[in-house]
């Protein structure tokens, strides 16, 4: 295994974010904090408790998931798309690195960034709303699995995209709606029965539910189901990435 190479790629990707710290760290933290101010501190006090949790505290796990999903996808997709677009990818592809090592470098860095962001936002939320974490280890597990899975998805999008438009398309048209409809701001038992059933087809519901369970011990579905769904999702993403490299799709004619 070429650990030096993985480390080099990982560090270069992390350094790229540090160069643009305003855009990659400060801006998502501020925009997520605004949700806490508006929905948590301001409006939240007028909304009744959800399953025994104050509304402000209820949305904390959902918002962190929202941030995690969008940041993982955008970090990872840009991370691989940019070198493809500029042509510098030749160097990575001609280096003595296996496909898995390339994925570890790019996806590892993207996932790390979104986990760091998630933790920053978690700490920031403390300033606006009180919350507790019942199962901290499970919380970390959900955080890591979600960041990894969606960074892999972003990596796939970054390889599939042949222009900046496509790069934005999936995050805007798929990820964001799924997240908003995934129980970030509400518990799905607030919905009419028909929409409850439809919502269960949304994978984000399971992520938010599992993550929220690790905070308050409550969720729309059992945490085991959440864990199974995200693991399946991770396996599917890995299979697609494996196939991309085996066929050389968009990388190696």
């Amino acid at each position: 295994m070429n650990l030096n190479a993985v480390k080099t790629l990982y560090q270069a990707e992390m350094a790229r974010s540090l160069r643009t710290v305003l855009q990659s760290v400060v801006s998502p933290v501020i925009s997520t904090s605004l949700y806490f101010v508006v929905f948590g501190a301001a409006i939240g006090t007028r909304i009744s408790e959800v399953n025994g949790v104050s509304y402000g505290a209820f949305i904390v796990p959902g918002l962190i998931m929202l941030l995690l999903l969008t940041q993982s996808v955008s970090n990872a997709s840009f991370g691989i798309f940019f070198p493809r677009f500029s042509g510098t990818i030749y160097e990575v592809l001609s280096a003595p690195m296996s496909y898995r090592e390339i994925v570890m470098g790019y996806v590892g860095a993207a996932a790390t960034k979104s986990i760091i962001l998630g933790l920053i936002v978690l700490a920031t939320a403390r300033l606006f709303v009180p919350y507790s974490i019942e199962h901290p280890l499970m919380m970390v597990l959900f955080l890591v699995l979600t960041a990894l899975t969606f960074s892999l998805l972003g990596f796939i999008i970054g390889i599939w995209a042949d222009g900046f438009e496509k790069l934005q398309l999936v995050p805007l048209l798929v990820i964001t709606p799924l997240t908003f409809l995934g129980g970030t701001f509400y518990s799905i038992d607030m919905l009419p029965p028909f929409w409850q059933a439809v919502t269960l087809a949304n994978p984000v519901v399971y992520l938010v539910s599992g993550f929220r369970w690790s905070f308050y011990g409550i969720g729309d579905v059992s945490p085991v189901v959440s864990l199974v769904v995200i693991t399946l999702f991770l396996a599917a993403a890995l299979a697609v990435v494996e196939r991309i490299f085996r066929t050389g799709y968009r990388l190696k004619p």
Partner: peptide, 14 residues
């Protein structure tokens, strides 16, 4: 300097 050091690292050299 950084881009040249990056290339060396990618090829697994210390």
């Amino acid at each position: 300097w950084d881009t040249v050091a990056f290339s060396r690292g990618l090829f697994g050299k210390p």
